[in-house]
Amino acid sequence: MSEDNRKVVIELKDVCRDFKVGDEVVHALRGVSFKIYEGEFVTIQGTSGSGKSTLLNQIGCLDTPTSGEYYLDGVSVRKMGSNQRAKLRNRKIGFIFQNYNLLAKTTAVENVELPLMYNAKVKPKERRQRAIKALIEVGLGDRLEHKSNQMSGGQMQRVAIARALVNDPTIILADEATGNLDTRTSFEMLVLFQKLYNEGHTIIFVTHNPEIAQYSSRNIFLRDGQVQADTINHNILNAEEALAKLPKKD
């Protein structure tokens, strides 16, 4: 398949983002341009201060660019108001955070239902069914009614992934999603991400861990607010194999 035939889900055109810190202007993003196609598993890497958090906020519609254009699924985000962006986040983006961000004292199902609650079109019955389906997909079919404080880190992150999947988003946006997990659990997560990738989900994974990049289909390197490198990974490692090679926990 030639690249041009694939659907573009994200297009950044010379995106700049400036912050005012006191009297100084900090240029966090200095003209970032790239396209992400449907079904890609992209890692965005960079050291701290490279602008990857700012970029993540742009892609996640939490922020708008100072200049340049950002199209999400063909829609320009730059001039959107906060309510429109909230709707966009609700329908098109699934967030996964480093520290899971589950609601305290709340069951797995209720946590996963959360994005659908802000979508009036989804009826309660359907909401619950979709939440259960998403939890089964991430392998937590047997822990639907477990509360967030009764789960391990890996389980919590699975709930978070299910929450990101439940609204059938255009892109899944992971921010250091394995950062708080041990190696083995991290690989379990990678297995899950690869599974989602193979099912056709578009995944953007922001990380500073170069090892993870080997398991994704495309690597973008950010430095000083600019894209330093953007490479296709032709040799995607299999996370499942890597997991099998890891020493078993006792």
């Binding site: 906060s82 909230a86 986040r89 967030f95 609601l103 994005p115 609204n167």
Partner: peptide
């Protein structure tokens, strides 16, 4: 605050 941030990021508007 964190819960509010989460709700906003999954699509809650200010009014919600």
């Amino acid at each position: 605050t964190k819960e509010i941030g989460l709700r906003m990021s999954v699509g809650a508007r200010s009014i919600d």
